[in-house]
Nucleic acid binder design. Sequence first.
RNA 1: GCCGAGGUGGCGGAAUUGGUAGACGCGCACGACUCAAAAUCGUGUUCCGUAAGGGGUGAGGGUUCGAUUCCCUCUCUCGGCACCA
Length: 946
Amino acid sequence: MEGYDHKSIEQKWKKVWKETELYKTSDEVAGKENEYVLVEFPYPSGDLHVGHWYAFAITDIYARYQRLKGKNVLFPVGFDAFGLPAENAAIKRGLNPREWTFQNIEVMRHQLDSMGASFDWSREIVSCSPEYYKWTQWLFIKLFEAGLVEKKISLVNWDPIDKTVLANEQVLADGTAERSGALVEKKEMEQWSIKITKYADRLIDDLDALEWPNQIKEAQKNWIGRSSGAEIDFKIDDSDVAVKVFTTRPDTLFGVTYVVLAPEHKLVEELISKVSNKSAVEEYIEVTKRKLERERLIGVSEKTGVVLEGVFAINPATNEKVPVFIADYVLANYGTGAVMAVPAHDERDFEFAEKFGLPIKKVVIPRFVDNKNPHVEGKEVVFRKGVLVIVRNPKTEKYLCLEWPNQGWTTFISGGLEENESVEEAAIREVYEETGYKNLKFIKMVSGPVQVEFFAAHKNLNRISNSWCVLCELENEEQDEVSVDEKNLHTPIWLDKSEINREKMMHSELDYVLDLWKSGEKEYAGEGILINSGEFDGLQSEEAKEKIVQKVGGEMKSTYRLRDWTVSRQRYWGCPIPMINCASCGSVPEAEENLPVILPEISDYLPRDDGKSPLAKATDWMHTKCPKCGGDAERETDTLDTFVDSSWYYLRYLDSNNSENFSDIEKIKKWMPVNFYSGGSEHTTMHVLFARFFNKALFDLKLSPVSEPFSYRLNRGLILGPDGNKMSKSKGNVINPDIEVEKLGADTVRTYLAFIGPYNEPGSYPWDPNGIVGARRFLERIFKISDKIVEKTPESVEKVLHKAIKKVEEDMQRLKFNTAISELMILTNEIFKSGISTEDAKIVAKLISPIAPHLAEEMWQKLGGVESIHKENWPVFDPEMLVSDTITVPVQINGKVRAQVVLPSEMPENEVRELVLADETVQKWIAGSEVKKIIYIPNKLVSIVV
RNA sequence: GCCGAGGUGGCGGAAUUGGUAGACGCGCACGACUCAAAAUCGUGUUCCGUAAGGGGUGAGGGUUCGAUUCCCUCUCUCGGCACCA
């Protein structure tokens, strides 16, 4: 028979599929469930790279599988066609951005077509077409009417290269622009902004119900960055103003020793008249202003700041006056722009306090529950103040410990404080009582109190002990006899520092104490038990938080890292913001009947340094009438961030040709939410978050029937160059899929990419030029199955076939296309050994059809199929075929596989034991030893212990 | 620093509930076919060892008849967040 000619096969079937409109999807098919399979629509850069293939062709496998499983599958495609590259090409090469874009789209349509993907092209959308952006504008106005859009002067991210404002999401951690790489500047500009922060809580909380990969959910949570705490007012002494601070640790309020304002804080202006060091304060503000945002972010270096001399804030818990500083470690745009500083319990405050010599007041002590000696229920609970003594012998450099033979512990010496006794006195007394050493010198406190909860076995009671840790030195080794009681309990031993072993130490707090002993005392940022906090002493942090907030009249509140979404872009190639500025009416949306506000043709696309869009040059277009009062007015000349276009496109696919509405609610109801959404991980905190927000807002406006748009989201992996690096022209490691398709065929590229690794994990896989040859070889073997046709499928092949039906089905469902293909390879190898019947070969064609649709269709037709294979149903496996009469079971002896025995399946356990023990190899291994135990896991293995 | 995902042959990866670790593919080696090569087909391929046997899933410990899988400690890689109060 002739060889596998991918070119003619693929051309032939693509044509047939197109002519028969095989993939045109109805909104409803009787008896079929709808399944919406979506891939992020591509930007028409004009070049379909391997990444697009990985996105679309592999998702197509899933779409085709779902179709075979009897679902009515929608798999649409379109173009996210507004954006900077078009405009930059226009500027650089004198092209019209529209023409440039549509030319690219034309090229990409052909490339996308070459995949043989089951797109319903009749629903194609192009976001830069007026038919589409009319509805982007309409939805923008709906959000405006709902109070979710506002124009405000804000400090924005200005990209000096692209000369436009960027959303926070478009600025990288090092302060450079994601697109241009320019160092982003902060500018105050009047911008349109969408209030995504109003939805912050729902955007976090609704994630819980979604069955998405954890990484995506966590990344979104981190990005939104909710922290729960409280806002508390600190009155300024001798005035009627107050500083509102945000804190997550109201339980440390009694430990506040100063208050810090961000240099940009509004109150600073007001307070500056009162300070006696005005010039120093003004200078500091000037200096921090000049520091770039980036330095402030990454700098992390030395704490700087200046005190407002003569200004004091009043701690509402204690009524103490504390100094007020301004310092740039406090950020103006987070929380309230002011913090209460608790140096004892916050690392940054601690650093600052050390540098400025401010007092450090400890109000929380760590609390430990000793898991090795937990409280025993029913026993008395006794509280005490205690001491933990580390005794050093300066001559030997060894440390004194006690061995408790009955419990197997080694501990430091510890005990309770007696009435009117100081910690130091108690330490020296305890050492004397327990070891007889007479001459001890107190050296220092290793730690303040630490609370530990444990059961004191020798006293038969539960203890809660606040213990101080003390370091003492032995002045000489003079020693008295100790009491018999003490002697029976424990023996003193001297250990090297390195021998003091956490494992053997009695109480859990020792980990903490040992750390302090080594590194010295610093701030304790954890939660614990309150001390020095008046009526709240002894409470745990969690409980104290609410009570303290209540007492001082504060308010429990959350703040977010998430900022509102600035959507104005000072660029040409985008969706015009459909707003009109009227001198008398203010900002007014364009009347609905006048939509779309068409993007005018202009000749000069160059962005301007003054922060205005190139559209400001289209004066005819700009001058218009106010829709409200009819007076002269001007159009908004900024365009929308392209993320607005892509925040709703999945709804437009459902009704892409509707000229009366953005999308018909009845159609949306049929398809939403999207069942499967494949995209790039770079969009986790951008597009996916914006789209979720948008859809939620539309849900609240009753324009979308669901509050979450995507019931499953997958961040797909990355295909690297053959050298293991990210593909890039400069590295010369770019694989052009068009060339691979030409050489080996679309089916081969699909198979290879599906086989390269699991699709449901965002791994990165190098393109292996040999690997794709392997995929081609496999398809050639599939093609040659027609040479292996026999009258009746041999039983050995039949069994493998049914196993494959089951396994491929499972793997497709869980997106492990790599193992599905591996199973098909095993099946193919078996067929090559023994042959297969025509009818069963047709099943094989079905199994491969989602992966290699052209080849499968060709095979199907040659085997006598009439209709398209892609209209068939997934084969059903016969469970009978999966069980066999005999099974081979491994025999483990002492955990090692030593023999294989062949058993009839369903053999009773006692017979299995007999048979196994009689086995020759088993005999050899157990000869001379006594069989202690035999474990039989039916049909799995036998384990013998001797 | 916090949060998340990971670490398995020369390589990509498999092992779905604790049950024969390394499926399948690539590469490599040998063989068949060939004057020869390519293609194809076949055999082998975790490491050490001629073998018997032993070691082995980032490291160390634990639970278990049995651990890549569960628990503890540590380590490294990748991703998100980060002077975020």
